[in-house]
């Protein structure tokens, strides 16, 4: 795969100006916190979206946008699932930059634009399975994580990737409320093994449902790892660290017996306090939405080989 060097190839040289401008418009709209940007619906994006790589034929109904944008676990804005939609509007997402450190040839602080500009966006329809046994089907818009990571030139010692969410208590009320009554620490940290991070299904998402990400869904930049429980798909990323040792991740630190580092969706390994054998596919209905949970959330064909020979009961 070609590694694009920022220093030698300027995006302006390879990107037609009209496209570049419409991207600027997209970013500007994202910053304004508006939805349904015309730029996104514009032709340039449609042309750039190939028929989803690694995306299985999807006969499952999409979760309505209103549900996916109003039922979120984003503890930075409160522990109730309706809190993020109510409190995230005050978050400043422009300017936004991501610090890249650790085992990379090109560490540094990259603006959101630096990170996104060289890439084509793709639409990926993925299942999202929360560790709390509910699930959704969401059409994400993003870029393969591996393509972004390669640009930072990981060294041979980069065995893991650690991601960190923004820590800004002034705009994230849930961070102010932590302490005695809560058992997770901020900033939120998640991580992947390098081969998981390099898997083509893992993406950095910037949009969903043909629009820029709502803030409660992790704008402007979040991870989506569809074969793992939702808490692995960290939101509001401000730091990416490549490291030789397994990152200490937030939920794992908070309750190691309940939330493993791997957190692969697995109907056979129950959470100590509830079954993971089935899930409620949230579609707004009261009944009939209980379905069986599938191994690796239905992505076993694509990802099972990452874990061959591993005892998934032990490495849950």
């Amino acid at each position: 795969m070609l590694i694009k060097r920022r220093a030698t190839i300027q995006p302006s040289e390879i990107t037609p100006e009209a496209v570049y401008r419409s991207r600027r418009r997209f970013l500007g709209t994202a910053a304004a916190g508006l939805l349904a940007t015309p730029a996104f619906a514009a032709g340039w994006l449609g042309e750039k979206i190939p028929s989803g790589l690694g995306n299985p034929e999807f006969d499952e109904a999409l979760t309505p946008f209103d549900l996916a944008s109003s039922h979120n676990n984003y503890y930075e804005f409160g522990t109730d699932k309706s809190d993020p939609a109510r409190h995230a509007h005050g978050l400043t997402i422009d300017p936004w930059s991501v610090e890249v450190v650790g085992e990379v040839g090109k560490p540094g602080v990259y603006t959101l634009e630096d990170i996104l500009r060289p890439h084509d966006f793709e639409e990926r329809v993925y299942r999202l399975r929360c560790v709390e046994a509910w699930s959704m089907v969401i059409p994400w818009i993003g870029i393969p994580l591996q393509a972004v990571l390669r640009r930072f030139e990981p060294t041979g010692d980069a065995k893991y990737v650690e991601f960190t969410t923004l820590y800004r208590p002034s705009e994230m009320p849930g961070q102010r409320a932590s302490g005695f009554f809560s058992s997770i620490d901020f900033p939120y940290v998640e991580g992947l093994r390098i081969d998981e991070a390099m898997h083509p299904l893992a993406i950095l998402a910037v949009g969903m449902y043909g629009q820029v990400l709502p803030k409660q869904n992790g704008a402007p930049l979040r991870l989506v790892v569809p074969w793992k429980y939702g808490f692995k798909s960290i939101k509001g990323i401000v730091k990416i660290r490549l490291t030789e040792t397994e990152p200490k991740t937030t939920w794992n630190l908070s309750a190691p017996r309940e939330y493993g580092f791997y957190a692969n969706v697995n109907p056979e390994v129950n959470h100590p306090r509830w079954s993971q054998a089935n899930e409620r596919r949230l579609d707004g209905s009261f009944f009939g939405n209980r379905i069986d949970t599938r191994m690796f959330n239905g992505y076993a064909d694509e990802v099972a080989s990452l874990y061959s020979g591993m005892n998934l009961r032990r490495y849950y």
Partner: peptide
């Protein structure tokens, strides 16, 4: 209200809310 289609009434996971 939820049966009438009002999402705000019981949220995205009405069973759990009830």
């Amino acid at each position: 209200r939820a049966l009438a289609g009002d999402l705000e009434a019981l949220g995205a996971d009405p069973g759990e809310a009830i």
